[in-house]
Nucleic acid binder design. Structure first.
Length: 427
RNA sequence: GGAGAGGUGGCAGAGUGGCCGAAUGCGCGGGUUUGCUAAACCCGUGAGUCCGUAAGGGCUCCGCAGGUUCGAAUCCUGUCCUCUCCGCCA
């Protein structure tokens, strides 16, 4: 969330930002309420002071009568405090709701536009688009999965419903290979590997900017608990520093988290994509960084560079997209996506996403840092980026690896991790 | 899952209704002394927030949320977490 004082002092900029991001938030109402809240807050503090003074004076009272009079005085003040406090609580609740709905400010260079139509392509990967002979029709991964017996969507549907799947045979080893490959690469780049819980408390979800319950939620929640299945390890890794103040010497803290990711994909039903592209569960290796504010832009470039390296190594052609304001989501200040070429859909499809969330998540999570020898603390900046989302990466590897002679060739970068170089058809 | 114990500042650890934002020790910062280092000694040392140009002052915070009271780290309720023992289990 944004700082309340910042909102008050930058009303026009905040409103314009909401508009650019295609978000409806009642900023005017916020300003109105926050102004009243501040007055009430001061009133309460004054009353508390009075109350404290009365309480302290009681010990020095000479006579019992004097004592009783003071007690009565204190009692009255307490009643008054309770009254004002109740008003304050009502204000807080409404303020909090509005504050949550106000998105992060956007990077001044992020393309302005209502939706993904305004996304800007800012680069391409090293690998050229595949060239097949005239007349050769590449299959999509669903067809390939059938012929090579790699994924069983029907069994997934029988067991858990549409959007679930069983990986089989070489696909299982490829999942493990992609994980290994990504984790080792990140370790080389100074990331500490972790596996994270696949569940998190709803507070933590909210801190990361996810809404655990509600009609449009992406999140599966666990009945009779305040836990939800995570949609990404970004949630759990961000939660790592909840209510923590760490020393600046520990920054930047670069973490890599492996988790399962669960998404309801509510509202996406109509345009649900075929096969592995949009599924309810997948495995992901995620990058997450806590850093000082002046480091975050450079870190963001570093995360993007690592994503490029991974997909260049996997010999997957892609383009880089600078995400438009309207498509950023709440917490992101700036976001780059890598979109891989997917022959089956004859177009590009998102495979990674890296965001600089500045202090937007940190404020809600209350994640701070302290510089030794200096007074006070400050909010850290948080960044996240996909290293490999297995389902979509696997999709691309299979579709791009298919050969006209009927084999699927595995990218060189993965060969150290699997006991095969090609996959043969089974059907 | 059951029984017990406990959660206090960077750490250890006092504190069972007002003299406590919190003793003491360690650590940390500064200084004195000393060929250097060390030791010894002295001073200082939590965070958030509000008012103020500042000096300074107010408010809040002893896991978290409520409650009792003129007054709560201290009493009560709930909750989370940690430890010990038992049960179960990969």
């Amino acid at each position: 969330m944004l700082d309340r004082k910042f909102i008050l002092e930058n009303v026009d900029a905040v409103k314009e930002n909401c508009e650019n991001r295609n978000v409806v938030a009642d900023v005017d109402r916020f300003v109105e309420l926050e102004t009243i809240r501040r007055e009430k807050q001061r009133e309460i503090e004054g009353l508390n002071q009075e109350s404290n003074l009365v309480a302290k004076s009681i010990g020095k009272c000479a006579t019992p009568d004097e004592r009783e009079a003071k007690k009565e005085e204190g009692r009255l003040i307490r009643e008054k405090i309770a009254e004002v406090q109740a008003e304050l609580n009502t204000l807080e609740a409404e303020l909090d709701a509005i504050q949550l709905s106000i998105p992060n400010m956007a990077h001044p260079e992020a393309p302005v536009g209502k939706d993904d139509a305004s996304n800007r392509v800012v680069g391409y990967g090293k690998t050229p688009l595949p060239q097949w002979s005239e007349g050769f029709e590449p299959l999509d991964h669903v067809e390939l999965a059938e012929i090579y017996d790699l994924i069983d969507f029907e069994a997934g549907a029988r067991v858990a419903g549409a959007g679930f799947y069983f990986l089989k045979n070489e696909a299982v080893l490829l999942e493990l290979a992609l994980k290994q490959f990504a984790i080792r690469k990140l370790m080389q780049h100074g990331f500490t590997p972790t596996t994270t819980p696949d569940l998190a408390k709803n507070d933590v979800l909210q801190g990361a900017g996810f809404i655990p319950r509600g009609n449009e939620t992406q999140i599966y929640s666990i009945e009779n608990t305040d836990l939800s299945l995570v949609a990404t390890a970004e949630i759990t890794l961000g939660g790592l520093l909840t209510n923590q103040t760490i020393d600046s010497t520990e920054l930047p803290m670069k973490l890599c988290g492996v988790s399962h990711c669960f998404r309801t994909e509510a509202g996406a039903a109509g345009r649900a994509s075929r096969g592995l592209y949009r599924v309810h569960q997948f495995t992901k290796v995620e990058m997450f960084v806590f850093c000082e504010p002046n480091q975050s832009e450079a870190m963001h470039q570093e995360l993007l560079a690592i994503e490029r390296e991974i997909f260049d190594d996997l010999e997957i052609p892609y383009r880089i997209v600078d995400t438009a304001t309207g498509d950023l989501g709440g917490p992101a200040y700036r976001k780059y996506d890598l979109e891989a070429w997917m022959p089956g859909r004859g177009g590009y499809g998102e495979v990674t996403s890296t965001s600089n969330c500045t202090d937007y998540q940190a404020r809600r999570l209350n994640a701070r840092y302290k510089i030794k020898g200096e007074k006070g603390t400050n909010y850290v900046h948080t960044l996240n980026g996909t290293a490999v989302a297995i389902s979509r990466a696997l999709l691309a590897v299979l579709e791009l690896g298919q050969q006209e002679d009927g084999m699927i060739v595995i990218p060189r970068a993965l060969r150290p991790y699997v006991p095969f170089v090609t996959i043969q058809a089974r059907k």
